[in-house]
Simulated scan of single mutants.
Amino acid sequence: MSWQEITFGNFAEIQPQVKLEKGTAYSFIEMADVVPHTKNVIPGGKRTWKSSGGSKFENGDTIFARITPCLEHGKTAKVSNLTDSKGFGSTEFFVFRGREGISDPDYIYYLARSPVIREPAIKSMTGASGRQRAQKIVVENTSIRVPEIQEQRHIASILSAYDDLIENNQRRIQLLEQSAQLLYKEWFVHLRFPGHEHVTITDGVPDGWEKNPLGEIADITMGQSPKSIYYNEDGNGLPFHQGVTNFGIRFPSHQKYCTMQNRLAEPGDILFSVRAPVGRINIVPDKIIIGRGLAAIRSRTGQQNFLFYALKNRFFKEDIMGSGAIFAAITKKDLHGVELLQTSDQIAKMFMAHVVPIDLQIEKLHQSNEQLTQARDVLLPRLMNGEISV
C-alpha cells in the first residue's frame, strides 16, 4: 500500500477540545501516573475541574509529556478507564487524537512513541534548564510519512500484541504482590499469625517480638550524586538512578548511566525514595549507582523479603514521612529512626517460606517483560518508517 507525506498536525488533532463542567470531579492523570514506555495509564484519582489549569482528554487519546526529563524518559501513554470517558491532567501533556477516516488512535500512540515524533519534539525544547518544554508548533509541523488507515491498524495491532502481553504480566505482578502484602497485614498488622491464640500481646507487640529502628536491623546507603559530566545514555559505566523517574511496579528500568562509581546499590537491595515522593519503593535488579534522591536498604539478618513488605506496609502512603517547605524529604536520621515491628525468627521464616516463591514468580514475569519490551522496541521504528512491510 502507498504511504503519503503529511504534517503531524493534519494527521492528528493536537490539544483537541474537551468540554468539562466547572465544579465537577473528573478522572485526573498526573505525570507520576504515567509509567515510561507503558501503553495504558490508570488515573490516580479524581479532581474537581475549576475551568482551567490542565490538559483535557478523552478515552482513546494519547498523552505525550512535553517537559524535560519526562519526554526523554518516554512518558507517553494511551488514555483509558476515565470515568464518564473524559478527564484532565498535568499541564505538561500534549494531547493527540485520531482524525476520523485519516488516523487510527493506536497508530497515533505508537507514532508518538517513535523517533519520528519524539526526536523533533526533544530538539525543539526551550526554556530554563531543568524546565525545558517541547514546542507545539514544531510538533504540529513535523512532516511524517504514513500508510492508509487499514495498514495503520495492522501495524498498531502487531505492536499492541506485545503491549497486551506486557500489561497482562504487569497485572499478574500486581496481583502476586497484593497477595503477599495481604498476608503481611494478616500476620503483622492484625496479628493473626500462626499460633497467635497462645501468645500474649502487650501494647500491640506479641511476646518475643519488638520494635526496632531501621538503622539497627538494616544497612542503609544514602545516595550521593556524582557530577553530571560523568552521566551518559550510551550504556557506559553502571546504571544511575537518583529519583523515581524510572521506577516500575517492582523494578526500575535503566536509562541513564554513570562512569563515576560513588554510592552503590547491589542486586536485591531495596531502593527507597528519600525525596518527593517519599517512600516509593523498588528493588535493585542489578548493581547500580544511586544519587541523592534514593537510599539502598539491606537486611542484616538475611530477611530481605520480610523487610521489603514491612517497608511497603509502613509507607503505604507516599510522603508519610515527608518534611520540608518545598519538596517532601526525609533525612538520614529520619530514615534510620523508622520503627518496624520485628517478629520471632520462627515466624519470619514461615512468612518467608510463603513470599519467596511469590517474589521469584514476580522476578520471572519482570524478566519476560524486559524481553518483550526489547522485541517491541526493535520493531516499532522499523514498522513506523515503512522499513518492514505488513
Rank of each mutant, 00 (worst) to 15 (best):
A180F: 08
I358C: 05
F272R: 00
S52G: 02
K211G: 06
E177V: 13
G101N: 12
M125S: 03
D234T: 05
D345G: 03
Y107K: 02
K78E: 08
Q367H: 13
A77T: 06
K50L: 10
I229V: 14
G235N: 05
C70A: 10
T245R: 00
N369T: 03
F306Q: 07
F57R: 06
I155S: 04
S299L: 13
A128G: 03
I29D: 00
I117W: 03
D269A: 12
E363L: 15
F351H: 10
L82Y: 06
I358K: 03
Y231H: 09
A296M: 09
E177T: 09
V199Q: 00
L20Y: 11
N246L: 13
V189W: 00
M1F: 10
K364H: 13
I166A: 07
F11P: 01
T91H: 08
N141V: 13
A134T: 02
C70F: 08
G54S: 09
S80Y: 00
F251H: 00
N262G: 05
D33N: 15
M384P: 01
G53N: 09
Q4W: 14
K227F: 09
S51H: 07
V116I: 14
V138K: 07
S85P: 05
P36H: 04
E339Y: 12
E186H: 09
N369G: 04
G195C: 12
P285V: 14
Y257S: 03
Q361Y: 09
F188M: 06
P105A: 05
A121I: 08
G89P: 02
D84I: 10
K46L: 12
F188P: 02
V138I: 15
V199D: 00
G23Y: 10
A295Q: 04
W209E: 03
T68M: 03
K19N: 12
L191M: 05
R153I: 14
R275I: 15
H336E: 14
S143Q: 11
F64C: 01
I117H: 01
D234N: 14
S299R: 14
A12Q: 07
A25E: 12
R172Y: 08
T343L: 06
R376Q: 08
A134G: 03
V18N: 12
W49Q: 05
H73F: 09
Y230V: 07
G98R: 08
K39W: 07
V116L: 13
A112N: 02
L383C: 06
I144K: 05
Q242V: 06
E151A: 14
S129I: 15
R97P: 06
V139M: 07
G89M: 10
V338A: 04
R292L: 11
W49P: 03
I229N: 03
Y184V: 13
C70W: 01
K312T: 15
I297F: 09
E140Y: 13
V34M: 14
C258I: 15
A32M: 11
T91C: 10
G248Y: 04
G74D: 02
Q242Y: 06
Y107H: 03
D377K: 11
G291Q: 05
N59G: 09
I67H: 00
V355H: 06
A180G: 07
D234F: 11
E177Q: 04
A161G: 09
Q181V: 11
G74N: 04
S299P: 10
A112C: 14
Q178S: 08
I29Y: 00
Y231L: 08
W49Y: 11
D319I: 01
R263P: 01
D61C: 09
L159I: 05
